[in-house]
Structures are given as structure tokens and as C-alpha cells.
């Protein structure tokens, strides 16, 4: 790929999604955009780039952005963020939100739904405890295509075997030919909407728990800071933020701080979340 073409695509992606594409990711552009070019009746990736340069076709730009920002997702991915949710976040929230009986959870890179549904399943496992509560799990993603799949809650045999314990498959899924359908009791616990993390958070309200995993790695330093600080703004003072294993707030913002010894878990620097959860110092 020509340098000027790479720079053009990288610039376009940065502007539209915040995605930072470094030169070592040329292969990713080629492997993800070539099929898209073909689908659009264009012979090569070069032809696709030419079309983008000339027409600024908004639908095409959106398709390109979606193709580049889509990530594979597993149920209970990395385990720890879900163990912490079950063993520390939920007990703390049960106490702290007991009077209002309201809990709001945001999965900011929901992709095809495995993360929000994993959280819904954990809540469901102790459902008697949450009777009478108003629990919202909101899944957002920049890519509308993945959200359609998330909403449908239909997964392949491969997908349901990556991270989902067999007991939970038996309990919460129904087999339908070659695919597995998530039961409505779980599916209805999550609402999805398209959302770009670069856009304004006003209207999102306040969240008790935010999962924003494996997104910030694609942003440059200034965008990371901006997104993290705005997320801090929507996070309750005693709320918890989960980032991906390769992400951190350190050196980016001091509004949030890591919970000591708990990888990927962050709280507001001015709040008392650790104390509530019985974690950290």
C-alpha cells in the first residue's frame, strides 16, 4: 500500500472513530477492507481508496470504519473482570444502592454482546437478591452491524464454547439447528444503542459500573485522556471502571486510579469505592 493511501485511511479512521492506525497495521487494512471492496463491486483495495477520496461517500466511510473497529468477543473474556464484578462490585452495590434499588451498567464496547450478556447472566444467577431492583445494562458500540448481532443473541457453536461454562449454556440458551439462541430472560436485560466514544456523553446519565475494554488501545494519548475523563464524569463517585488488560489510566489522567492488586479495575480518585468493595488499601 502506498504511504499516501495509508495516511489517508489512517486520517479518515482517526477522524471518524478515534482509531489510531500505526504503519505495522497495514495487514489489518488489507485483510478487512479487501472483502468490503469486493462487496461494493470494486476490484481492489486501491479502487476502494480512490472512491473514498473522490466521493466522500458517507455510507462507505461508515462501512470502512465498522470493518476496522470490529473485534472478536468471548463470553466471560479474561475471567477476572467478571469474578471481580460478582465477588466485589455486586455485593458493594447491593449495599450502596440498597435504598434506591437502582443499578446502571454501561458496556462501552459491547461488540456482539458477549460482555453485557455475561454480566446479565451473573446477575441472573442470584436473581432472588435483585427482585424489585431497576437494573439497566446498556451496551453501546460504534458499529451498528455488531449491535444487530448482539440484539439477536444468536451465537454459533464456536462462539458459545469460548468462555461460556456448559452449565450456563444449558441454563440460558436454546438450541436452534446449528445455532444457539440466548433465552429472552437474559436478552431482555440488555439494551443496545450505537454510540461513538468521541461524541458527547450528555444524555447517558450516571453509571455505577462501566466496562470499556480493549478500545483505548486504539486511541492516541490525547483521545485516551479525553475519553477517560469524560467517562469519569459519568461514573458514580463510588463506581467502578474496567479497562482491558493492556490499558491503564496511569500517566493519562489522575481523576481515576487503579485498585491495588486488581488488574484492569479503576475507581474515582476522590471516591470510596475500594472501601465499599473491601479491596485495595
Amino acid at each position: 500500500m502506498k504511504t499516501q493511501d495509508f495516511d489517508f485511511l489512517a486520517g479518515l479512521l482517526k477522524e471518524r472513530s478515534g482509531l489510531m492506525l500505526t504503519a505495522d497495521k497495514v495487514y489489518l487494512l488489507e485483510s478487512r477492507l479487501t472483502p468490503l471492496a469486493r462487496k461494493r463491486g470494486l476490484d481492489t483495495l486501491d479502487a476502494l481508496i480512490q472512491k473514498l477520496r473522490i466521493s466522500r461517500d458517507d455510507v462507505l466511510i461508515k462501512d470502512v470504519t465498522e470493518a476496522m473497529t470490529t473485534n472478536e468477543s468471548f463470553f466471560f473474556r479474561d475471567n477476572t473482570p467478571f469474578d471481580l464484578f460478582k465477588n466485589h462490585v455486586l455485593p458493594a452495590m447491593e449495599k450502596a444502592r440498597g435504598p434506591k434499588r437502582r443499578l446502571r451498567i454501561w458496556c462501552a464496547a459491547a461488540s456482539t454482546g458477549q460482555e453485557p450478556y455475561s454480566l446479565a447472566i451473573l446477575l441472573r444467577e442470584n436473581w432472588a437478591k435483585w427482585q424489585g431492583w431497576n437494573i439497566e445494562i446498556i451496551g453501546t458500540d460504534i458499529c451498528t452491524q455488531v449491535l444487530e448481532k448482539a440484539k439477536a443473541g444468536v451465537y454459533s457453536q464456536f462462539e458459545v464454547q469460548r468462555g461460556l461454562p456448559i452449565q450456563m449454556l444449558i441454563k440460558y440458551f436454546t438450541q436452534d439447528g446449528d445455532v444457539w439462541r440466548l433465552n429472552d430472560e437474559i436478552r431482555n436485560m440488555v439494551t443496545y444503542r450505537p454510540f461513538n466514544l468521541l461524541s458527547n456523553f450528555i444524555g447517558m446519565g450516571s453509571f455505577d459500573v462501566i466496562y470499556c475494554r480493549n478500545v483505548l488501545i486504539y486511541f492516541d494519548q490525547a483521545t485516551k485522556k479525553d475519553v477517560l475523563e469524560r467517562m469519569h464524569g459519568t461514573l458514580a463517585a463510588d463506581g467502578t471502571l474496567f479497562l482491558g488488560a493492556a490499558e491503564t489510566v496511569l500517566g493519562i489522567t489522575d481523576k481515576l486510579r487503579p485498585v491495588r492488586g486488581q488488574r484492569g479495575m479503576y475507581v474515582s480518585s476522590s471516591g470510596n469505592a475500594e472501601e465499599l468493595m473491601g479491596l485495595g488499601s
Binding site: F74, F158, Q161, G163, P165, I166, Q167, L169, I170
Partner: peptide
């Protein structure tokens, strides 16, 4: 089949075909 296996005391269940990621996850 899955229910029968779990009731008989299986701890996990993999449906073929499998790959490294599935084995690792299970």
C-alpha cells in the same frame, strides 16, 4: 446429550470441531 453427560458427572463439555481456544477456555 449435554444434559445426560453433566448429570452423569462430567465437568465440562466440548462440541466438536474444537480448536485450541475452546480447549483452553474449557
Amino acid at each position: 446429550h449435554i444434559r445426560t453427560a453433566i448429570e452423569a458427572g462430567a465437568n465440562e463439555y466440548i462440541m466438536k470441531p474444537f480448536d485450541r481456544e475452546i480447549i483452553e477456555a474449557k
